[in-house]
Amino acid sequence: MNLRTLVKYWRTILIVAEMNIRQQLMDGFIVFTVLFQPIIIALLGLFMLKDKGADAAMFVVVGSGLTGLWSSLLFISGGSINFERWTGTLEPLVAVPTPFEVIVFGKNLGNVVQSLVSMVVGYFIAALAFGYKLEIQQPLLFAVSILLAIIAFISFGLVIAPVFVMNPNVRAWQNAMEFPVYILCGFLFPVLLLPAWTNPVSWLLPPYWAAVALHGTSTEGASLNQILFAWGMLLLFSVMDLFIASRLFKLMLYKARADATLGME
């Protein structure tokens, strides 16, 4: 997949994202994962970091939102192709002229956008229930960071979905993959607390760079150079993930057609 494809099918992407959000609002598991779980984690973090001031509260708000983004990516985007399988809509989606990865891109966009709602709710909880006066220190840079994080998360989701489809055994590890990323990406505490040998693993994860950019711009904890570097890494990972995803989608669809297993687990 490339930028030209995304521009050409922008309308499809938006409609798929909208349909996806509408459909998922009816699913209790998804509503919990993208909305309630990050809010509960935010509440927990706000109670735990109560004495650390407004900066820590902002750190919790952003970090808990990131946990929602990752959980949504892992459980919902990761299963987005299988969901179509279970509902019997996979074959028509593959058969339509629109590239299948464009449709999954739209679904991932819907997932990521709805996950961001938890960050907004977390903000209001911190402000209203805990009485913090929260201010995003660098609003413009924060907005750009959000945009780049969304693209990076969607692209990462495009890699995860076909991997989970082609390797059902990997999918069974989903539950065990949620908290390690919360830890390694420094969503709610700095990765400096972790042993140094874990740092290279963090650097390989796009959510880590999203956390660096978002925490850095929301709490003024990072210099402009650091933020620019994080943005660069987000873009780099997005391009790499899109490239890998396009190959994976081709392989997945070829295998499914060759083995006649498109609609089968």
């Binding site: 735990m48 949620e178 709610l188």
Partner: peptide
């Protein structure tokens, strides 16, 4: 992983 997460969060807090 869950234990590690909350232990690190708690000690950070």
């Amino acid at each position: 992983a869950q234990m590690f997460f909350f232990v690190y969060l708690g000690t950070f807090a």
